[in-house]
């Protein structure tokens, strides 16, 4: 009984599906706008990175964690340092938004990544806390002035001491 119903419906369904497909073709999906990184060229040719970046990062991750190899070329930290750039206000794009280099494509392709439940999503020295060792030019204007930052840091240490 049900089967015959499906059989009768088949042409209708086929029509619907092809209609949807046609619509999709005409309204071509907006391609992701990939934020530009620092420098002219990535550590590998762009085509190569688009296809194989995950393999390189995964390979490097095991080399680094297990064997202590610390080359920077394929390290995730290095990806972030080049590709995550602050906007005019000095704020870094958040992971998951289309402005973040990684999320731009991963949102588009609907591929979930697990890197950033643990890894930093932006380069170091983005906040005043770690400015001591900093050499990063992207500081908030109101956070500038190394004397202020140092005392802020000392204050943090002092308060966390009490918390212990």
């Amino acid at each position: 009984m049900r089967l015959t119903l499906v059989n009768k419906m088949t042409p209708v369904l086929t029509g619907l599906v092809s209609l949807m497909l046609t619509a999709t073709v005409f309204a071509a999906p907006p391609m992701p706008e990939i934020p530009k990184g620092k420098g002219e060229q990535c550590v590998e040719p762009t085509e190569e990175m688009r296809v194989n970046h995950m393999k390189k990062i995964k390979h490097q991750r095991d080399l680094t964690v297990i064997e202590g190899v610390r080359t920077k070329k394929h390290s995730l930290k290095e990806c972030i340092d080049c590709h995550v750039i602050p906007d005019e206000t000095g704020a870094y794009p958040k992971i998951g938004t289309d402005q973040h280099f990684c999320s731009t494509c991963h949102n588009f392709a609907s591929v979930n990544i697990d890197c950033f439940s643990c890894h930093a999503t932006k380069p170091e020295e983005s906040d005043s806390m770690h400015s001591m060792t900093g050499m990063n030019p992207h500081q908030n204007v109101d956070m500038s002035g190394s004397i202020n930052q140092l005392s802020q840091r000392e204050l943090d240490i002092a308060t966390s001491e009490k918390r212990q």
């Binding site: 194989n52 390979h59 490097q60 080399l63 190899v69 610390r70 080359t71 920077k72 070329k73």
Partner: peptide, 23 residues
């Protein structure tokens, strides 16, 4: 791919480093 990836000369960021970064 791995062999190629780590083979090229890597600049060491410290001369006094006990272990080269690629070892």
């Amino acid at each position: 791919a791995a062999g190629i990836a780590i083979a090229p000369g890597v600049i060491l960021n410290s001369v006094a480093q006990a272990k080269p970064a690629d070892k």
